[in-house]
Design a protein around this nucleic acid. Structure first.
Length: 421
DNA sequence: TCTGGGGTCCTAGGACCC
DNA sequence: TCTGGGGTCCTAGGACCC
């Protein structure tokens, strides 16, 4: 038996934590650069604000309806997420953190307690210890637990917990779940299934397996088995090292200033290198990409990327920046284009201890490593941009929009919540 | 009348997730 | 002025090997 615990409207709940006046009011959180809506409170959903809608189109609507708007504050959300996960871990021997606001719990060893009672206890404890509301779905497989969670949000608003305890309840849930709301069925598959008259999860489970395999590959077949109660999706308790690491951002405003883009690419490359070091990996390829604004169809479009092979697998900031800038130099076209976004991706990632030294290199890795360790620990202790490479500069000339940013209440001493008495 | 039978690796593209 | 930023897995087809 598995449980899926999911925080309700997570980013919104994080903002409400430090401003209770936001409770029962429409609240939205925007993506980076205040681009589009990525989290909505129930009240905002009820106003018809869709997921992913461009924020600028709703400016006046937000004002008119009294919608509270926030820029995304990942420092805050990350810290609240850690607290939720730590609390969840205290309930079960096996926990799989699935995303910033969701985790699977293996309930199979907790036979001395009723699963629904555990679900209720989890919800109560998280509310009390962290302060964000969660929903709990409990069922025999991961895909069914996902579905049960959704079902709990819709049908069990009071308790926030749904336990698919028997075949009858499972069937009820499968019948009530739209095909498009199944985990693993996106818009493409939903359309294909609809065309065949498959509208509910129940009907999906009644399809012949050969058809599912042919139309939706082994992934679809796994899902089919899962929804019939047969576990087919693996349990991933430990966090696996990433196979690709990407850092990219909008530039904040359109630009074709090579030196500004160079600065941005250097910063993205440095973050990639740091992410590599954190998971004790090195990469053998560096990819750099730039692009104009695809929404501005009236303007000339240019999207290009290039991948460079590293001489030796590396996670050294200076190396990754050098490769990225070399790539940028090759793909950058100034005349006629205005760039909106750029980024760096490191690929072909292997564990740090597997580095094959280049036979002709006289590089001293030990020295590099000492320098980077010093740099990382300084940045950890004194703020993330304290020590940086010269090309990254200190006078950021590109800046994301974040006009509605809340404080980093839980992670920065200067931004603690102030209470006046 | 008639052109083997295995493999592996890589890439691009398509689907999905949060 | 203004539309995010990450990831994963699977498949088909081509190149190449013996």
């Amino acid at each position: 038996m598995y449980a899926l615990v999911d925080c309700n409207n997570f980013y919104v709940s994080c903002e409400r934590l430090f401003d209770p006046s936001l409770l029962h009011k429409p609240v939205v959180v925007l993506s980076n650069n205040d681009g589009c809506v990525i989290a909505r409170s129930d009240e905002a959903k009820a106003l018809g604000i869709g997921m992913g809608v461009p924020a600028y189109m709703f400016d006046s609507f937000f004002k008119q309806q009294g919608v509270a708007v926030f820029s995304s504050n990942y420092t805050l959300y990350g810290d609240i997420s850690d607290r939720v996960m730590k609390t969840l871990a205290s309930f079960v021997p096996r926990l799989e953190v699935y995303s910033i606001d969701e985790a699977f719990l293996d309930m199979s060893e907790l036979t001395y307690q009723h699963p629904a009672a555990i679900g209720l206890a989890i919800r109560r404890t998280i509310q009390q210890h962290v302060g964000v509301p969660v929903s709990v779905g409990i069922a025999p497989t991961k895909a069914l637990a996902k579905m049960a969670n959704r079902y709990a949000k819709k049908r069990c608003k009071e308790t926030g917990v749904f336990y698919a305890a028997n075949a009858l309840l499972l069937d009820e849930m499968l019948l009530a779940t739209d095909i498009a709301d199944i985990w693993g069925i996106g818009s493409q598959y939903a359309t294909r299934l609809h065309a065949r008259g498959i509208t509910t999860a129940k009907k999906f489970t009644e399809l012949p397996p050969d058809w599912v395999r042919e139309q939706m590959s082994v992934t679809g077949l796994r899902l089919w088995n899962e929804l019939r109660g047969l576990p087919a999706i693996e349990w991933e308790a430990e966090i696996k090292p990433k196979k690709n690491i990407c850092t990219s951002r909008s530039l904040g405003k359109l630009s074709n200033d090579y030196s500004v883009i160079k600065e941005a690419i250097s910063n993205h490359a440095a973050v990639c290198a740091l992410k590599l070091r954190r998971q004790e990996s090195v990469c053998r390829q560096v990819n750099v990409f730039i692009g104009t604004n695809p929404h501005k169809t009236s303007q000339a479009q240019y999207h290009h990327s290039i991948t460079l092979e590293c001489e030796t697998a590396t996670n050294i900031t200076g190396d990754i920046i050098a490769y990225a800038l070399k790539g940028l130099d090759i793909i950058f076209r100034k005349e006629g284009y205005l760039y909106m976004k750029c980024g760096v991706m490191v690929q072909d990632i292997i564990p740090e201890e597997c580095i094959q030294q280049n036979l002709f290199s006289n590089r001293c890795r030990k020295k590099d490593k000492l320098l980077l360790t010093a740099m990382d620990s300084l940045n950890l202790a004194m703020g993330k941009d304290t020590v940086r490479m010269a090309v990254q500069r200190f006078d950021r000339r590109y800046k994301l929009r974040a006009d509605h940013l809340s404080k980093r209440y839980t992670t920065n001493f200067n931004e603690l919540l102030k209470i006046y008495i």
